[in-house]
Design a protein around this nucleic acid. Structure first.
Lengths: 126, 126, 126, 126
DNA sequence: GTGGTCTAGACCACG
DNA sequence: GTGGTCTAGACCACT
């Protein structure tokens, strides 16, 4: 597993760790019941404090992505990937709603936003 | 000018004040060179600390939305509204890029996002 | 608010704090949007580490019982008390199911358990 | 004897082993003075560490369910099954007391709990 | 070795 | 003053 921490990223380190593990699980890069690196290993590898990694793992367990057994380590939980996608779509919709509202005052409408998306699509195709 | 502060909003106080003044200026509710309430008046009206209002005004000045004259108060700056819109579009584009990347791992593509926008458009039309 | 920590209680301290605050909120002893003691105050009062109190407050926020604003403190969230009761009943039902299963092998049936409850009711009436 | 261990079960391994042996004894599946598998056999069969099995057997001996003879192995102790049932009832009563207290603040009374038990009885009859 | 809890102390953003 | 993050270091239960 490749986790990259950046000081430029405004997110706190524990969140960067958490999000990247979450992504790996969501993408299926980590299989169900697969063992994660121990908190100590991960801390060394990322050169961060034990506590920071612990925080990331604890959050992941709380959110149901992993389960942890004292003395054994942490493992990927059984997750319904369909739910993950639906949840993400709801999350994105909320984000989009915020964007629309923030643009309203400047006469930016939904078509303008769709156009930006098309632009991004084209840029990616290059 | 109506500013509404909410403890439930996760944004810090100074940002809520700043954003709402910025919106009022962007929307043209505050005209160029119009005088803003003094920092003291604003603090009293919103029942918040002087420091908080000061921080909001300072940020707005730094971002070029207002200018301040010692002993006279703060005033709406001369702003090119076209620039404002262009800036906002760039900002939105950056946000959209983040959203696209966050959805990629779950096979959410740009069309899915466009669909969400259409949904939001329909919901607004009701 | 009266919080009692006991070393005899096998629950870790942060959980004892969390549960007692949760109870106070559930019971309505703490009103919605009422300010809780700051983490620092609470730590001093209970004579425990700042971190332990922090852990309790963080859990409570995560579970939706309180909301926290940096620089302002922690406040009781808006909670639907009916939901709380329903949730608790589900939780109790799960506990009872475990008890029934644990007693099956020894020919302890549901009537036996109901009898124990009646006993407890009588004892309380004294 | 069938022992099933699950990583998903939050109980530690040694406790899962202990509880299932205890159940088998309580239910009479293991007769008095019957020989248990050796610690080594059990460890291999369950694919767990020797230490974990040792801990389970030690606890069982301490609780009086088995006795161990050096060089000969472990055997089911002579147990008064009536005592077992009485003990279990006391244990359940303690659990019920906790449940009642935990529900009091939300106006959940003993009748509510009895109702839950009736529900569980009906569900089991299906 | 594993994670879980508790501790002390630092720096930062916010009010 | 408030909470948020990161740090180091200890002791415990479990494998």
């Amino acid at each position: 597993m490749f986790i990259v921490l950046s000081k430029l990223n405004p997110d706190p380190m524990y969140k960067q760790v958490k999000d990247q593990i979450k992504d790996a699980i969501s993408a299926g890069d980590l299989q169900e019941n697969e063992k994660l690196p121990s908190i100590r290993e991960m801390s060394k590898e990322l050169n961060i404090s034990l506590i920071t990694t612990k925080r990331a793992y604890a959050d992941l367990e709380h959110e149901g992505f992993i389960y942890t057994r004292a003395g054994m380590g942490s493992f990927v939980a059984n997750i319904n990937r369909v739910d993950l996608k639906t949840e993400k779509l709801v999350e994105i919709k909320t984000e989009l709603k915020k964007i629309i509202i923030s643009g309203e005052k400047l006469n930016i409408n939904i078509d303008d936003i769709v156009n930006l998306l098309k632009q991004l699509e084209d840029e990616n195709d290059k």
